[in-house]
Design a protein around this nucleic acid. Structure first.
Lengths: 194, 194
DNA sequence: CTTTTTTAGTTAGCCGCCTAACTATCTGCT
DNA sequence: AGCAGATAGTTAGGCGGCTAACTAAAAAAG
């Protein structure tokens, strides 16, 4: 569970009440915001609990998936899967970038993965600053064993939504994501915007 | 930023491709899942960045809000606001419960808040095991100064959504939240479900 | 009235996230 | 050639999650 959040979201009347005191408070926006974080957190923790049973964290799992995705393209058993990304991430820097964490964080993740024998660091022959991170066979088996349950969890989480509702949800979330990106880009200091 | 996640979400064709290999993979469910976590994460980090400018974390802010919400009811300046919750949380245990974290975590949060002079621990006269946590005047001013910008951020994040879309979003998220709760309740061990 | 169980809070230690500072290497400029 | 700056990775230290183990006090059981 990544973040601390109210277990019981405030009732809508409370938001309306708050809006009388704070004119900046947009009740429906606030409600949507709180539900988004709450649902995201809950969904996250459900999958995290699943992964934890295989003694792996969400973060490490993400790294494994990135690497696994890369290897699939090369060692695929006759499938010749269309590459969905130009070239799978290999180095810690690429992995950090793809995962959206800092390089320092990636160092720590690779450390623990290597300690658990799921990953190997190999020096790059051309550039001695760089490392290449590879999955071990153990990791291949590990991921393959893990994924079915992981996908089932996702499917069950979204089970109450129809296909149309899912598309609607994705569309709405995409809009929010975009406005979040704009806020990030245009308002590094909040008071300097508006 | 609480969680590690793919910066670029996989294209839908990749999910379809993956579904050929893993029959458990429901592409639209997976897509919705990824978008939900991604959007939640992004939105979270936008507000976190705002709070960070006031040198406070999302977690500490949550505690302040819970306490502030309690005090509002008692010291409200003539407003006599309808209590939105039965009785505001006061003790570390109540705060932990309301915030959805463990007591150990709450101890840490209160520690740093107390260190920064935003909160005071007072022993309960009736039950010597218990503590009562109170906001300092400094915290009152702090929260009052912080909230307008915080509400503005929420409003801007949700700006691209119409009122109807916000209601739709909340309804969809509520469905997901419910299925997540059911998964949590009925499947403490994943393999024991289904 | 003692003993056991429950409860409140803290402590200790792990993990993953961050930033900032550091080392080593490569690249480019002159 | 040689040095300045960029780049890859790590290290160090902080924070906020967690679990598990502990202390002190209250409540329940006998």
């Amino acid at each position: 569970m990544p973040l601390l959040l109210l277990k019981d979201l405030p009732r809508y009347e409370c938001l309306l009440e708050g809006a009388k005191v704070f004119p900046e408070l947009d009740p429906s926006a606030c409600e949507a915001y709180l539900h988004l974080l709450r649902a995201g957190d809950e969904v996250f923790s459900v999958t995290e609990r699943n992964l934890a049973e295989h003694t792996i964290s969400q973060g490490r799992f993400g790294v494994l998936m990135l690497l696994w995705n890369s290897t699939q393209r090369r060692t695929s058993t006759g499938h010749t899967v269309e590459p969905c990304r130009p070239a799978g991430p290999r180095t810690p820097a690429e992995l950090a970038d793809a995962a959206g964490v800092t390089r320092a964080t990636m160092t720590g993740l690779i450390d623990t993965l290597e300690r658990d024998g799921l990953v190997r660091r190999e020096p790059d022959p051309d550039d001695r600053r760089m490392m290449s991170v590879r999955l071990t066979p153990k990791a291949d088996a590990f991921v393959a064993a893990l994924l079915p349950a992981h996908f089932q969890i996702m499917a069950r989480l979204m089970a109450p939504l129809s296909e149309t509702e899912r598309k609607t949800l994705v569309a709405l979330l995409t809009k929010i994501l975009q406005s979040a990106s704009e806020l990030t880009a245009t308002a590094p200091v909040l008071s300097a915007s508006s």
